[in-house]
Simulated scan of single mutants.
Amino acid sequence: MSSAKVQFMITNAMRAILVDDLDYLDAEVDVMRPEIAAQLIETRTKRPFGDRPMPEAWKRGGNMPQRRGGGALSNNLVKLFLAGVCCLGAAVMSGRVSVGTLLGGAPLGRKPLKKLSSEMKSTKKRKSSSKKRRKKTAAA
């Protein structure tokens, strides 16, 4: 049975498999939810609860099992937002970004950028001795 189909009733063939092959009681099959019956047949699950009664969640009109989890942090968008806030907080705490930058005014980082040319020392280039020799030999 494919998972795309929705089971809405228990057929006589399904009932025969559940009772004869998988050892479920007739009274249990009468009140069993059709989608549970289809799943039990598909997985060939024998009656697993021994002398105990069938779980209420398996019965028609019974309590559906509640989903665990939920809450505010179950939403992926909330998790992504919190991760972004943490990253920005870490950047501000480490000094990589200033709060003013986040608000739209101050420059990035703790120190303003300096021009490289103002810090470089000028050095005179020495002429090589081979050039001097060439000039002397050319003049002579």
Rank of each mutant, 00 (worst) to 15 (best):
R60D: 03
A106W: 03
K115G: 07
K114Y: 09
A140Q: 15
L73W: 08
R67Q: 08
M1H: 05
A57N: 11
A90S: 15
M9F: 09
L102Y: 05
K79E: 03
P48L: 05
V97A: 11
G105Y: 13
A106M: 11
L116I: 08
V99T: 12
G104K: 02
V6A: 15
L22I: 06
Q66G: 07
P65A: 08
A106I: 09
L80F: 11
K127N: 11
F8C: 09
A106G: 12
F49K: 07
S130D: 10
A91P: 00
D51L: 11
C86I: 10
S118I: 10
Y24D: 00
A106E: 14
K121I: 06
K111V: 14
S94P: 07
S118D: 05
G50I: 12
L88D: 10
T101G: 04
A38K: 02
L77I: 13
V6W: 14
L77A: 15
L116A: 12
L113M: 11
K115F: 08
R110P: 08
K114P: 02
P55V: 03
G71C: 06
G69Y: 01
S3T: 14
T137N: 14
K136P: 00
I17W: 07
T137H: 11
A16D: 12
A37E: 01
S94I: 15
T123H: 01
K135L: 11
G109R: 02
G109K: 03
M93F: 15
V6T: 12
L25T: 07
A38F: 00
G100S: 08
M32L: 04
G104N: 06
L25R: 08
Q39P: 01
N12I: 02
T101N: 05
T123G: 01
K46P: 07
R134S: 09
G61H: 07
R134Y: 06
R67Y: 06
K59T: 10
L113C: 06
S117H: 06
F49P: 04
L22H: 03
L77G: 10
A138C: 09
T43P: 02
K111Y: 13
S117V: 13
S118K: 05
T11N: 04
L73H: 06
N12R: 10
I17F: 06
R133K: 13
D26E: 08
G105A: 13
D51S: 14
M64F: 03
T45P: 00
A139R: 14
